[in-house]
Amino acid sequence: MRLREDFVAVRVPASTANIGPGFDSLGMALDLWDEISVHATAGATAVTVEGEGAGSVPDGEDHLVVRSLRMALDRIGAPQIGIRMRCLNRIPHSRGLGSSASAIVAGIALARALVGEEEVLSPQEILDLGSQVEGHPDNVAPAVLGGATVSWMDGDRAGAVRVDPPESIAPVAFIPGFDLPTSTARRVLPDVVPHEDARFNLARASLLTALLTGAARPAGPVSFHDLLMEATLDRLHQEQRRASMEPSLALVDWLRGAGMAAVVSGAGPTVVSLEAVPASVRRDAEAAGWRVLDAPVAASGVRITRGRLAGPTGAAD
């Protein structure tokens, strides 16, 4: 298989995963984008990074986008190339906003763009490959499809469905000045959970999915906000991680006590409120050292922005 393009570019959104009870299964794309361009060359690989990660991430073959791009080219039998890559990164690293999943999806989408054939690396193949590299699809699925997603694994094959949240879902991210590697956050989780806690989360995750579709019909006079507060409760992972990110869980407690449906974003330490927050809350959080960022739901996933396949790679706008 030959490469039809020598200069391509993609943009890929951040994501928040788990959303409270949906451990390793629920995710949502956020309107915060990394932009990556690639020139195919005959020379050595060189990576220029601006924004998040500049000066700290690898600038050659070890860069995650490069590794994912090469993996995808190998998978489809396309030739390897020298790579001159420029990254404009807006997604914070090791903060629970899907930066690694976005990098993996970007690399695979860049391989698709270089080949330039519609039938090569379909959204399902990008989802499969990305989830295999990442280890789970909860951030990969929204990065590919946009919107909110429910995802799962069946062996090496990933499954996902997309839903479009109602306008009342207006995420706000509270990003701390410290990071937390996902591997560290996962090490504190128990191997076995009580049946009661599993049942608790299953009910809330089901309710949250219903709310995200915008089709929930409550049995009585209950507001969407009240249902969302209930639907974002969790017993499987957030409290278990308190010791490794006490400021994040303290912020979740404070926000929920003030009436906002707040959760830890992915493995943390970023916190996300699924609803708009008052200006006073924003000011207090910023004064305490949090970067507060409106992060609306992204309507599309990864997009090829330069090349003959330019346009949404996953779900359309």
Rank of each mutant, 00 (worst) to 15 (best):
Thr16Arg: 10
Val57Asn: 04
Asn201Met: 05
Val49His: 01
Thr209Ala: 15
Pro137Phe: 12
Glu52Phe: 03
Pro218Asn: 14
Glu50Gly: 11
Thr41Asp: 01
Glu125Leu: 15
Ser300Pro: 04
Met71Cys: 00
Gln132Lys: 14
Ser265Arg: 06
Val281Trp: 05
Ala160Asp: 06
Pro92Phe: 12
Arg306Tyr: 00
Glu134Ala: 12
Thr209Ser: 12
Thr232Cys: 07
Leu73Phe: 08
Ala9His: 03
Pro123His: 08
Pro171Ala: 08
Ala40Thr: 08
His195Thr: 14
Ala310His: 02
Pro218Gln: 15
Val292Leu: 07
Arg187Gln: 09
Gln240Glu: 15
Met229His: 09
Ser25Cys: 14
Ala279Val: 08
Arg90Asp: 04
Ala288Trp: 05
Leu274Gln: 11
Val10Pro: 08
Val193Asp: 06
Pro218Leu: 14
Ile126Pro: 06
Ile108Pro: 03
Ala298Ile: 13
Pro166Gln: 01
Asn18Arg: 10
Arg2Tyr: 03
Gly220Asn: 10
Arg256Thr: 10
Val150His: 03
Glu167Pro: 10
Pro190Met: 01
Thr41Glu: 04
Ile76Asn: 07
His225Met: 01
Thr16Gly: 13
Arg235Tyr: 04
Ala198Val: 09
Ala298Asp: 14
Ala158Val: 11
Asp154Cys: 10
Ala285Gly: 06
Ser206Trp: 09
Leu211Ile: 09
Ala258Lys: 12
Gln132Ile: 14
Gly130Cys: 02
Ala299Tyr: 04
Gly220Met: 05
Ser248Pro: 12
Cys87Ala: 15
Met1Tyr: 00
Met85Trp: 00
Arg204Gly: 05
His63Met: 12
Ser122Trp: 07
Asp284Glu: 15
Leu309Lys: 11
Arg308Val: 13
Asp294Glu: 14
Val120Ser: 02
Arg112Gly: 11
Gly147Met: 07
Glu50Thr: 01
Arg162Thr: 12
Gly268Cys: 05
Glu119Lys: 14
Thr48Arg: 11
Gly301Ile: 05
Met85Glu: 05
Thr313Phe: 12
Pro312Trp: 00
Ala9Lys: 07
Ser273Val: 02
Thr209Pro: 01
Leu129Ala: 13
Gly130Phe: 07
Ser280Thr: 15
Gly82Met: 00
Thr45Glu: 00
Val172Pro: 02
Val47Gly: 03
Thr149Ala: 07
Ala109Ser: 14
Pro21Thr: 10
